[in-house]
């Protein structure tokens, strides 16, 4: 008992960060599951972080309301953005959403109220571990249930074949947009939680490398189910801690592990649980991530 408490005290921050990573990985899972490669979720996270922190600071908005506002702000931005970028596909779509991330970063850098490049400091540490893990539990449960619904099936169909999906009566643009906006909502919520965990935020927290990191969590974890992104986030957030004793060689080992997973379990870590089905999927050439 004593050692367990000790463990939590020592690693409280790391455990919190893992939970937030998992939320972010789930946010991008939504679009990946629908076959769309988008990289805007770091920026949506930033929107949620700044909106919630600024609301708390300037308007004394209660924490839950500030979080919700941050998440909604991200979702509201995602609507016109999604309408615009879903004309594109594949790598073009990915680049367009990255460009959006750059725009958000530049706006944050240029706006006085965000503290520009210095960022926002002194954000009250209101996020507690249970906030993060309750959010994660709710999001994972809802997405798991959605996966087996008419909507989840429509997303899977889109991933397999857009044209055939349209012929089955699936409104392709609407379903893509829905996955994107719900993803933005989750990322915005995670951003708010993260801002009130770390005391300070600045635009570089939500840039290109964060976007790629989120994608790596989800893809390396695997998209067949919601467990994939969570596993990916846990493994790749905890790994740097676990590999800490390797000091200078840490990054090299982390890279090697990533490479190994991608080569040997290309459809994600969780496919380890169902190797036969995964082999079959590969053999028949079923759609993979985006």
């Amino acid at each position: 008992m004593e050692t367990l408490l000790e463990f939590f005290r020592t690693y409280a921050t790391a455990i919190a960060v893992i939970g937030i990573s998992a939320l972010l990985a789930l946010s991008v899972w939504l679009t990946l599951y629908a076959g769309q490669l988008t990289l805007g979720n770091a920026a949506f996270m930033g929107v949620g972080a700044y909106v919630s922190a600024l609301l708390g600071r300037h308007l004394d908005t209660p924490f839950p309301l500030a979080l919700l506002s941050g998440a909604l702000a991200a979702a509201v931005i995602a609507v016109p953005l999604g309408v615009t970028v879903f004309r594109l596909r594949g790598v073009y779509l990915a680049i367009a959403t990255l460009a959006f991330g750059e725009i958000v970063r530049v706006i944050l850098l240029a706006t006085p109220i965000t503290g520009k490049g210095q960022g926002l400091n002194g954000i009250p540490p209101k996020t507690e571990l249970w906030h993060i893990y309750l959010s994660l539990a709710v999001v994972a449960y809802v997405l798991w249930r959605v996966q087996g619904s008419t909507v989840g099936r429509a997303w899977a169909a889109l991933r397999e074949d857009e044209l055939a999906s349209a012929s089955q009566g699936i409104d392709v643009r609407r379903f893509k947009l829905a996955s994107f906006v719900i993803g933005a909502l989750i990322a915005g919520w995670a951003g708010g939680l993260s801002a009130h965990l770390t005391f300070s935020i600045d635009p570089s927290d939500f840039g290109f490398s964060k976007a790629v990191q989120i994608l790596v969590f989800a893809v390396v974890g695997g998209i067949p189910n919601v467990l994939g992104p969570i596993v990916g986030a846990v493994v790749f957030t905890a790994l740097p801690e676990i590999l800490r004793p390797l000091k200078d060689y840490r990054d090299i080992f982390q890279g090697l592990i990533l490479l190994g997973v991608i080569v040997f379990l290309p459809r994600g870590l969780v496919t380890f649980l169902d190797v036969r089905r995964t082999r079959k999927l590969e053999r028949i050439g079923a759609a993979d991530v985006a």
Partner: peptide, 12 residues
């Protein structure tokens, strides 16, 4: 939809 089950194909 190759990667989905036969049943899911019909349900879609």
């Amino acid at each position: 939809f190759k990667g989905l089950s036969v049943l899911d194909n019909v349900l879609i």
